[in-house]
Design a protein around this nucleic acid. Structure first.
Length: 381
RNA sequence: GGGGGUGUGGCAGAGUGGUCUAAUGCACCAGACUGUAAAUCUGGCGGGCUUGCCCUUCGGUGGUUCAAAUCCAUCCGCCCCCA
């Protein structure tokens, strides 16, 4: 099977949800899948052994960040990112396109590419589509992404249109660069659909991307501040256009509720920093809703984070103890809360896949939400 | 016994006649975080309500003044030096 190719196993009869597999050089990924983000080649605060234990199937890394440090030479010498970080399993690299968005005050964008001023030492670096592809080849992830502009929100129609068109031009160049040698035998390249919240732009972007032709298709520029209904509407306009035999990846999403909504509409892959970043900030996802473990109400709560979770954190530590670790700024909490949150997201996708096997997706979604929001309802009373 | 200093909000610590409910930090109470410049950021932190104002606060008491955390007297507490 070609790296990055998608196999549809089962389609939901109730909605757009699908059960499937993505084939990669380093393993087969069951979808829907949640991919933890490890920007610098490490999922912050989580050791590889624990990450593996969580059931994570594939993790992300970031081209821009790894290019700056430690540099692609080191990673090449190590034998690729999967050897460098000992993960030895499927990985995906983002192209640097998100940094075009997140570092927009220290970069200059033009037709040819983007000049970044390093956030580390201020030095200047030029990322073109070709450069991004080369970097991603050197890093060696199983799935690579086109270099794009993650269009900021809000963007007026004119900006969204030209930004989307720029990403299209860059996508063509990425593809050309990618297929220059035989990396395609071990790596794959996904296209990224842009167009902000304008459905006509999104559909055009999708059709043009399909025209160029990629192994998989990602939706970018979402969950960056736009109303949820806009994201849903964008998904609903794009997804029917993409052929069934291609993986659909919703980039940078998200919250548990976003995964349900995305999968329901036909998304196969997600990635997000939320489990780790929010974990580091004390926010914990549980089947009964999200909580901030630093809050006073948990000071003497000796129960586990989530009664329904069997992760090492829920098995071995109480809320009161974790509350203490956070207050005392003992660094252990960074790892423990990140790990639990990753387990939560991974288990969530596991639950979704099971429900798709049993054709009970909508029912499971409803049950999840009822429980997940029960805390909010209680506090409203 | 003599001399000097000091007492400010939960803590540390600015302020030394009006612009003071009193800087700042910590602690405390919440909130945010979505292809990671994030172990970060934001807000709150005397009481009351009609949200603009009222009341109560700078060791205690008494005074000076139109006005006192700020000046004076006195009491109480703490610290340092000498004996």
């Amino acid at each position: 099977m070609e790296c990055g190719s998608y196999q549809l196993i089962k389609k939901s009869s109730e909605c757009g949800a699908r059960l499937g597999k993505v084939y990669t050089t380093r393993g087969i990924i069951d979808t829907p899948v949640f991919m933890p983000v490890g920007t610098q080649g490490t999922v912050k605060g989580v050791a590889i052994e624990f990450l593996r234990g969580s059931g994570a199937q594939i993790i992300l890394a970031n081209s821009y960040h790894l290019y700056l440090r430690p540099g692609t030479e080191v990673i090449k010498k190590a034998g690729g990112i999967q050897k460098f970080n000992s993960w030895n399993s499927p990985m995906l690299t983002d192209s640097g396109g998100f940094q075009v968005f997140s570092l927009r005050n220290i970069r200059k964008i033009n037709e040819d590419g983007v000049e970044f001023q390093s956030h580390i030492d201020g030095s200047k670096h030029f990322f073109s589509p070709e450069k991004s592809v080369q970097v991603q080849k050197d890093i060696g992830a199983d799935i690579t992404m086109c270099f794009d502009e993650c269009t900021p929100y809000p963007a007026d129609y004119g900006y969204a249109k030209s930004s989307m068109e720029l990403s299209l031009k860059w996508a063509e160049r990425c593809k050309k660069e990618f297929y220059k040698d035989d990396s395609y035998k071990t790596q794959s390249l996904f296209g990224i659909i842009q167009g902000s919240v304008y459905n006509d732009l999104r559909v055009r972007s999708t059709m043009e991307m399909l025209n160029i032709g990629f192994t998989g298709y990602a939706m970018g520029g979402l969950s960056i501040g736009e109303p949820k209904k806009d994201m849903h509407s964008v998904l609903e306009s794009i997804l029917p256009v993409i052929p069934e035999n291609k993986a659909r990846y919703l980039m940078g999403v998200g919250m548990p509720e976003d995964l349900w909504e995305g999968v329901e509409r036909g998304i196969d892959m997600f990635d997000c920093v939320i489990p780790t970043r929010n974990g580091r900030n004390g926010q914990v996802f549980t089947s009964l809703g999200k909580i901030n473990i630093r809050n006073a109400e948990f000071k003497e709560d000796f129960s586990p984070l989530d009664p329904d979770c069997g992760c090492p954190v829920c098995t071995g530590y109480s809320k009161a103890y974790l509350n203490h670790l956070v207050r005392a700024r003992e660094t252990l909490y960074l790892s423990l809360l990140s790990l639990h949150n990753i387990y939560f997201m991974i288990n969530l996708t596991l639950k979704m896949r099971k429900s798709l096997e049993n054709s009970t997706f909508i029912k499971s979604k409803k049950e999840f939400f009822e429980k997940y929001y029960s805390r909010d309802r209680l506090s409203e009373d």
